[in-house]
């Protein structure tokens, strides 16, 4: 699937002013994300999250990192799509320079990426940043 760009996501979510529409947008984005086949939902691909599971695999092609992710919770899946919009098919330099906290703040979703939320999102961002370092 072609994820919208971060700019498009910021615009889209900005346009939707009630929370239900905004979460519906995230849920729909999550549903569109292709996810991972069960053969790749392995322990070694798991990112720590206590309320839901998150899996991620990555590849590098011609200097660009690509990611495939999945979660058993659909809203987490949607939030993962927001993260992938920022990081997927980007160079290391682009990943390192992207302000993920600022992005989530602009989306007014910063509560979901806070380290105190056990949803695995923060752990996945840290893993991606680690791969790009």
């Amino acid at each position: 699937m072609n994820l919208p760009s971060t700019e498009e996501i910021i615009d889209d979510l900005d346009f939707l002013d009630d929370w239900e529409q905004r979460y519906q947008y995230i849920i729909d984005l999550g549903k569109q994300l292709p996810g991972l086949p069960d053969t790749l939902k392995l322990e070694q691909n798991k990112v720590r999250g206590c309320q839901s599971s998150v899996w991620m695999v990555s590849e590098e092609n011609a200097g660009r990192l690509t990611f495939k992710v999945d979660s058993d919770a659909i809203i987490v899946q949607g939030l993962l799509a927001l993260v992938l919009a920022a990081y997927d098919n980007k160079t290391r330099a682009e990943i390192q320079s992207f302000d993920i906290d600022g992005y989530f703040a602009k989306l007014d979703l910063e509560r979901h990426i806070s380290p105190t939320r056990g949803n695995g999102l923060r752990a996945m961002v840290a893993k991606i940043q680690g791969l790009a370092a």
Partner: peptide, 11 residues
């Protein structure tokens, strides 16, 4: 998933 229920109730 229970986490999705938790998310939307929390909101």
């Amino acid at each position: 998933h229970p986490a999705d229920i938790g998310f939307l109730l929390d909101r």
